[in-house]
């Protein structure tokens, strides 16, 4: 019996891998098709974005043919798939750069913001969630839950504007929109694209300080949203674990309470929590669209918004696919972590 198991395992793994690959490919194709069709169905002439309103018909026609828009739709789609597979998302009309270069340029800004926000979310949300679960029903539990509820229901752009009004305009505690004071922009040469790291690399301490300062408000806001979500999830995971018999056993055995909570119960929540954190990070990456607009934060969200408003279809499709791919990646990654950390899931 055991021999049989050992022999079939590689085959099973192979089968699983193929299944996952097929799933990823289908999801991706679906994503491509939908984004492509949206781009073609909207009643906006993409040639206009290239040549502007005042172009002569000859200039217009030349651009239309150069963009391949005279071909039948299915042919355009095939060409598009072919290009995307080879990593060519076309050229952005708005920036005159290849879309992939643009995305690589703006993505670190979003990553920096979403990363910081996730750290804040974890540091605030998980301890509060645990606290809430342990002191279930207490006054503080209710307060925490109300704060969490707010974080889940208030629109982020509104909260962003209010926070700017308060901390920037009224109290003068924190800086306004932008990744750094405007006159500091363009001084540090991007290495990683993450400004707080690049400024250290360049030894520009003033800019580093300024960048951190600028990061506080938007990251805290996004972090608040992420912590509200993590809080609710942690609370329910913990409540479920604390009801289990092994917790009772541990307590009976005289294990210290903090060890029961932080070791036993939280240890068993760790796996679902990782998934939740990964998903919340993914949501922040795409969810920062509005925050980036409010804070004039030059990341993927702002890039996507600008491209949409200017009918820059290549850029819109490119960013959508990248966001989709990141989501797929995060899902696969958390599945993988599951398997590594939980022997039962193997």
């Amino acid at each position: 019996m055991s021999e049989l198991l050992i022999r079939t395992r590689p085959i099973r793994t192979l089968k699983q891998t193929v299944r996952i690959l097929v799933m990823v490919a289908t999801t991706f194709l679906g994503l491509l098709l939908i984004t492509f069709l949206i781009g073609r169905i909207v009643p906006i002439d993409p040639v206009l974005a290239v040549v502007g309103d005042k172009a002569s018909p000859q200039v217009y026609e030349k651009a239309r043919i150069a963009m391949g828009l005279h071909l039948p739709l299915w042919k355009q789609f095939l060409i598009y798939i072919g290009n995307v597979v080879t990593g060519d998302f076309g050229t952005s009309v708005l920036t005159a750069n290849p879309v992939i270069d643009d995305i690589l340029r703006v993505f670190p800004a979003t990553f920096e913001l979403a990363g910081t926000a996730t750290v804040i979310g974890i540091l605030v949300g998980i301890p509060l969630g645990i606290f809430s679960a342990v002191k279930q029903g207490s006054f503080l539990d209710h307060v925490t839950r109300v704060i969490g509820l707010f974080g889940h229901s208030l629109p982020i752009f509104w909260l962003g504007l209010m926070a700017l009004m308060l901390f920037y305009v009224r109290l003068d505690l924190l800086p306004g929109p932008g990744r750094v004071d405007f006159f500091y922009e363009g001084i540090v040469t991007p290495v990683t694209g993450i400004l707080t790291i690049d400024s250290i690399v360049a030894g520009e301490w003033e800019i580093f300080r300024n960048a951190v300062y600028h990061l506080i408000l938007p990251a805290s806001l996004l972090g608040y949203y992420s912590s509200a979500y993590l809080l609710r999830m942690t609370r329910s995971f913990m409540i479920e674990q604390l009801r289990q018999e092994y917790i009772l056993t541990a307590r009976v055995k005289g294990v210290k309470e903090w060890k029961v909570i932080w070791g036993h119960a939280l240890g068993n929540c760790a796996i679902p929590l990782i998934t939740v954190i990964a998903l919340s990070f993914g949501t922040l990456l795409e969810g920062s669209v509005l925050t980036e607009t409010v804070f004039a934060w030059p990341g993927l969200g702002l890039y996507l918004t600008n491209s949409l408003l200017n009918a820059d279809m290549n850029a819109v499709l490119g960013s959508t696919i990248v966001v989709g791919a990141i989501f797929l990646g995060i899902n696969l990654f958390s599945d993988f972590l599951y398997k590594v950390m939980d022997p039962r899931a193997r």
Binding site: E185, P298, L302
Partner: peptide
Amino acid sequence: LRTWKASEIII
């Protein structure tokens, strides 16, 4: 014209 980042900044 030193820098142009579309929809972001010109220096």
